[in-house]
Design a protein around this nucleic acid. Sequence first.
DNA 1: GTTTGGCACTCTTGTTGACCGAGTGCCAGT
DNA 2: ACTGGCACTCGGTCAACAAGAGTGCCAAAC
Lengths: 338, 338
Amino acid sequence: MLDDRKLDILRAIVTDYVSSQEPVGSRALVDRHNLGVSPATVRNDMAVLEEEGYITQPHTSAGRIPTDKGYRLFVDRLGTVKPLSIAERRAISTFMAGAIDVDDVVRRTVRLLAQITQQVAIVQYPVLTRATVRLVEVLSLVPGRGLVILVTSAGRVDQRQIDFGALTDDQLATLRGRLNVALVGQPTTRVPDLAAALMDELAPELRPPASVVLAALIELVSADPATRVVVGGVPNLTRFGDQFETTVKPVLEALEEQVVLLRLLGEAGGSADVTVRIGSENPYEPLQSTSVVASAYSHGDDVWASMGIVGPTRMDYPSTMASVRAVARYVGRILAEG
Amino acid sequence: MLDDRKLDILRAIVTDYVSSQEPVGSRALVDRHNLGVSPATVRNDMAVLEEEGYITQPHTSAGRIPTDKGYRLFVDRLGTVKPLSIAERRAISTFMAGAIDVDDVVRRTVRLLAQITQQVAIVQYPVLTRATVRLVEVLSLVPGRGLVILVTSAGRVDQRQIDFGALTDDQLATLRGRLNVALVGQPTTRVPDLAAALMDELAPELRPPASVVLAALIELVSADPATRVVVGGVPNLTRFGDQFETTVKPVLEALEEQVVLLRLLGEAGGSADVTVRIGSENPYEPLQSTSVVASAYSHGDDVWASMGIVGPTRMDYPSTMASVRAVARYVGRILAEG
DNA sequence: GTTTGGCACTCTTGTTGACCGAGTGCCAGT
DNA sequence: ACTGGCACTCGGTCAACAAGAGTGCCAAAC
């Protein structure tokens, strides 16, 4: 159906359109790529490609532009992986060097990603799913009111304020001890089960405060970290001012809703490599004319989360994919060390 | 120079222009407001107002639009404070009800402010300047590596990981005790001085680890909280798609830079009431055609920070100012209770 | 002296029509 | 199977034109 030459032509259309932002015609195609055939031949092939749904014309007598299906084929079979330049690699390491904690790593990552892809970057906080509990601390601030702190093997530290009714210092120390014995070294995913088991073993007078503490802990391991997403490079959207309604506006709206962002990234979480969602493949309806390039980042089983970028479907997929992959790997390595 | 009628006319021009988004001419003016004079008279007065720099015409034979100076006069002398509707007041309290901690208060505040003003909202985290130290905690995670936690009277909890060389549990407990005796109840601003004094009193073997801990503490009280700013309502910018270059683009760029945001809000920090910076009055050059409406929020001396909104100079100042003021007061009250 | 109606003038906006160029689809010829 | 040629179709641009909005100014009226 699609012989090699037609694929070459599709590839040429995609690359030309991405760089020029304008529909590309048969003449321009033979001029810029040495296809060894005449414009007329290219036209015939283009007619076939259009029939198959890989390209389309905005209007009669205009050049062709790729459809979502065309981009998909390009990404799957035609895109040559473009390795990062030495300058880019160096930029990554200098940019990330000297990060002091997880917050800082995430902040730097989002900036870096936005800068080298020139798109809007989204980075999810390292999720605790496969992390283990390193320390649980319970402090009393004023009588009856205190703080629960959770430190995990991923280097995250979370805290929450709680109210536990009357409680002596001794009882508090007991509770702290029991908690640590029961939880330290365990995967954070098991905290809810273990918490339930622990409750049954406690002396009755400890149960009310313990339930408050455990509830807070469960919130910390489950709800919070998974919902934290950081965004950067929003001004890059201004490059697409001509597509205000189709790109700028929907992206700004999507960025406001963490739930949407997580959904966009979430789909990438399963795969180990870079995932691309093109236009209508997108799970979030308003982002019809944008693509998401995302990747999980991880080291072994310790950390697992996603990062990615959002941009118009008309983007340079090979470079973008290479950049996202490189940054994801680098960050995974940094988190493994820290 | 400017009699009452001219001021009335200026006020009418501002309100009409804000609501219609179009230059307003003499006829429309007499039609919509019962000024009791003819268009010709209005034209004469407008000529004077233009000469004085309060209004201008985009081109000959167009209506007039207010200049920055015109808006300034309007805000200072002509704007009638528009009290919030009952629905708006109710919206504020339901929106903020059930906030669980400072993070949550800030998150909700920024959403609320964006929603009721329909602009981009900026909220600075409560600054510790006038807060006092409530608790200092030093934990050991693994040998040689630990965590410093600072809790303040403003309800903020910050932590940082540190490396303190070899240190026994006893030494750690001593250090913790000394720190709390020296610092608890003191204003966070005094932490740097007190830290220096404390160093001199410590046993020599405690000094190296102590210096690491104190350095972290000083960072926590000074650098971090002051630089934290949360932004929301960015999609509201899409309402100004027609002013892409002058409003959307510069605002997006400003939002990316925390330093800029702090500068915008910072100027408002001194005053107790709502501050308005109109167009060129703005300290940040690219925001020439936008205004910032900001207010400090506080309760007594405990918490002190700013919040505000950014939007086109052509905004409804009375409502916006009323909204910002109301939210700032409400949040101050909530923080005082929490 | 202030206000007003009238009028000429200016400038933007929208419309129309012509024209140009880019690009296509098709067909006959190689 | 490829190619050159040709008629056809649109979008974009430009000029000319009309309509409309608004002003500035002046002489007359209050």
